[in-house]
């Protein structure tokens, strides 16, 4: 049974143009530089370089060197570079891949060498992305993302069900690693998509890490009716009101919205769509039922600690219930019970 929810992808408008560069504000310090490594540098040296270059993986915000260190202990690891974006309006990593696939592949090679992976793969949005791979690297294996949201989580789940151990790192992090190894640059730039129905121009922007959100949004030519700005995702991003907030390496997109669809919340009808949509195996309708009792049974709150707040359940719910809130409350209850020692 397919999990996740099928969303209309709107990546074409931002992929039409090339990635533009937003000039860095004067207040930011100059980027750090180091000596470049030799071609056949030892794995430990690559790891060290990832650490001092302060590369952050944009997939989950974890520092890359920590991640690679964790992968070292896994055996028969397949390293997968995620070169697509889960969010339907974002195309930042995909644009980076299209722009310079060779750099991403070089970074993937370096990362695989650093964590002693036995095979490397690229996960791209569709088979079309294959065109962007340079001819001399035609042998690289390509995985496709699938059209259901959240695609990276579902890909990870597919691999887990096959029983093979796989490590997932972001495409932009691979490119940053390649730069750190060959050119000695610390990670100081990231590509962010500006999109949303409040932006009249959807574009991918290369910005210095630390640039205020305001400067990036200006590239999207905001419409005056914009009332909500969300950072991170057009589905479950964090909404901000202070536009001086700096961009981090893990920021994938900045979405400007004119208004939100009005949701009228009705009681649960028991259709079971939330259970089918959840990529982590949570049963939100059961959580709702348990939360209405005075003494929720923690045994019936299955897998609530694994919730990644992707909002698939809330999107498919025909009653418009905020299921992620319910799951978070259930998580607190379950944690509370465990702390009490029951």
């Amino acid at each position: 049974m397919p999990r996740g929810v099928k969303l209309d992808l709107e990546k074409e408008p931002s992929l039409k143009e090339q990635v533009i560069t937003i000039p860095a504000p004067k207040t930011l310090p100059a980027p750090k530089m180091f000596a470049s490594l030799r071609k056949k540098a030892a794995a430990a040296k690559v790891l060290e370089r990832a650490r001092i270059a302060e590369i952050v993986d944009e997939l989950d915000g974890e520092p890359l060197y920590k991640k690679l260190k964790r992968f070292v202990s896994a055996d028969a690891l397949t390293l997968v570079a995620v070169c697509f974006d889960e969010d339907p309006m974002t195309s930042a990593t995909q644009a980076v891949f299209r722009e310079n696939a060779a750099k991403v592949l070089a970074g993937l090679d370096a990362a695989a060498h650093a964590c002693r992976a036995v095979s490397k793969k690229i996960a791209a949005a569709s088979r079309e992305e294959f065109r962007y791979v340079p001819k001399n690297r035609a042998g690289v294996e390509l995985l496709t993302a699938g059209d259901r949201y959240p695609a990276a989580v579902l890909l990870r789940r597919k691999w887990m069900e096959k029983g093979k151990s796989a490590g997932f790192i972001g495409g932009q992090a691979c490119a940053a690693l390649a730069d750190a190894v060959t050119r000695g640059l610390a990670q100081n730039e990231t590509v962010v998509t500006v999109a949303g129905n409040g932006a009249s121009r959807w574009v991918n922007c290369r910005v210095r890490i630390g640039t205020p959100v305001r400067d990036v949004l200006a590239a999207g030519k905001l419409l005056p009716e914009t009332s909500v700005v969300a950072v991170g995702s057009s589905v479950n991003g964090r909404s901000i009101t202070n536009l001086s907030e700096p961009v981090t390496a893990a920021t994938r997109c900045i979405i400007a919205m004119k208004g939100l669809p009005r949701r009228k919340t009705l009681p649960c009808v028991g259709c079971g769509r939330c259970e089918r949509a959840c990529p982590r195996g949570i049963i939100p309708w059961m959580i709702l039922q348990q939360l209405e009792l005075e003494e929720p049974n923690p045994f019936r709150l299955f897998n609530v600690e694994h919730c990644i707040q992707c909002e698939s359940c809330s999107i498919v719910c025909p009653s418009g219930i905020h299921l992620v809130d319910a799951v978070r409350r259930a998580e607190k209850i379950k944690e509370g019970r465990e702390n009490k020692g029951c």
Binding site: V5, T226, V229, A230, S233, G237, P261, I315, P318, G320
Partner: peptide
């Protein structure tokens, strides 16, 4: 004027 909003920012066509 910007205001805060709660995700999700999408909803499906299939409603009650």
């Amino acid at each position: 004027m910007l205001k805060n909003a709660v995700p999700p920012y999408l909803k499906s066509e299939f409603t009650v």
